[in-house]
Design a protein around this nucleic acid. Structure first.
Lengths: 243, 243
DNA sequence: CAGTGGTCTAGACCACGAA
DNA sequence: TCGTGGTCTAGACCACTGT
């Protein structure tokens, strides 16, 4: 189980081992795991090394500790992997749906004042504007407009955006996507949305405006989406601030 | 600076000290802080203790490390405190609005199957059910139903919920609120919502269902809210997962 | 009381970065 | 080569929990 000769740190081996036991269900929620001293003896490693492994698992939410009692398995967060900043493609796959798109338009336009401000570029700087109907299992899910500064996200083609824009940005352009802020509101479908989403007029839609940032804080993407309210629910987790 | 006789752990004292230097701007972004061995010698404490302090600051995003180079100050996250899990009261205050409430009902009821499942309690366990119209600057903002297990969040009174439920839970009951998952969708106002929110029939509303958890993963709160779409937008930030 | 996690020590060797 | 962070050891004492 633990190989002291391995180049992989011992604490990391122990971490992966315990993680496996939890994810496979061998260790059940609220069940106590062996004490730090037991691990230490069993594998002939220092207690501090055991603690380093357990600390990481506590930070990752796999375990929790209780003074004087022991260390216990946390409830599995089912949605654990749903988390984080994902593209539409990634999002749908996680939901077990097959994503696809119908391209409405794909052009380079000069940035309007409002758009320029949000992307932190000068007015009339060229930006890609991509309008698409996003589908899941071949049913219309959302109407989406994506804007990207052309000098930052270079050489976009229809083929690239049909595969995976995020993958292109991260792997081909070697940029690191860091975070995004989203504004989410409810509205009634406008006429273009009624047409493209194939809903009745008066139907509710979930509007999501996302601004995405690279590691250094540069905004690289503004996405406006209108999701069919009857098919889409936005799910996320948030932490309580430590005061 | 460091008091070895204090009941406060040394690593925590060092942590607070460094945090202060960063927040006050004495240590600037990308500036190197003293090495672990320097701290260790200067304050006559073990290097492992220094590492414990620095580890926590790295996890909290105050510092970053580079092998063979040193430990450096991270850029300040401006929105750091805007983020995270907040109560309606806290949310409105952050938006510069004055929060208030009109109580519709406040009772103890037996948990229905669906509610029991979400709160991870047995069917018919008593729960507090609180229905309120939430106001901002004296205008109706949301219709909200909160359910809390009565044996967990004990001794609730109308006065407490009018002040601050989260403060009561954290300070009086000494429970640690950890995180929440939310489901957000768009809908059309139902009749009760039309009446309480004073909107026209057919108006869109933003539905938010929140389940909140304590540190050990116990759910302690289920909140269903219907926000007026013309007055409320949900804003949040999310991180790209590190693959 | 014994066992647990929380804190702390005083060393050690390693891989890496910079000069 | 020297200083850095990364990993690891073999102990220690404490406060807390359950019996």
């Amino acid at each position: 189980m633990i190989d002291k000769q391995s180049p992989i740190p011992i604490y990391h081996q122990l971490e992966e081992y315990i993680k496996q036991l939890i994810e496979s269900g061998i260790l059940k929620p609220d069940e106590a795991i062996p004490s730090e001293r037991e691990y230490s003896e069993q594998y002939q490693i220092s207690r501090m090394t055991v603690r380093q492994a357990l600390n990481n698992l506590v930070n990752d939410g796999y375990l929790y500790r209780q003074k004087g009692r022991g260390t216990f398995v946390n409830k599995q967060k089912v949605e654990q992997k749903l988390q984080g900043l994902t593209s539409f493609t990634e999002d749908m796959k996680e939901r077990g749906l097959v994503p696809s798109s119908r391209l409405i338009s794909f052009e380079i336009i000069p940035a309007e004042p409002q758009l320029a401000r949000k992307l932190d570029i000068k007015e009339n700087t060229p930006v890609y504007e991509i309008k698409r109907v996003r589908m899941a299992d071949n049913l219309p899910m959302a109407l989406e407009t994506t804007c990207l500064p052309a000098n930052l996200v270079k050489g976009l083609t229809e083929e690239i955006i049909n595969k995976s824009l995020y993958q292109h940005i991260e792997e081909k352009l070697s940029l690191t996507i860091s975070e995004a802020t989203q504004q989410i509101e409810a509205s009634i479908a406008k006429e273009t949305e009624v047409n493209h989403l194939q809903v009745e007029s008066g139907s509710p839609v979930l509007l999501i405006v996302r601004t995405s940032f690279l590691e250094d804080g540069t905004p690289f993407e503004l996405v406006k989406s209108a999701y069919r309210a009857d098919r889409y629910k936005f799910v996320h987790t948030m932490q309580r601030a430590t005061k």
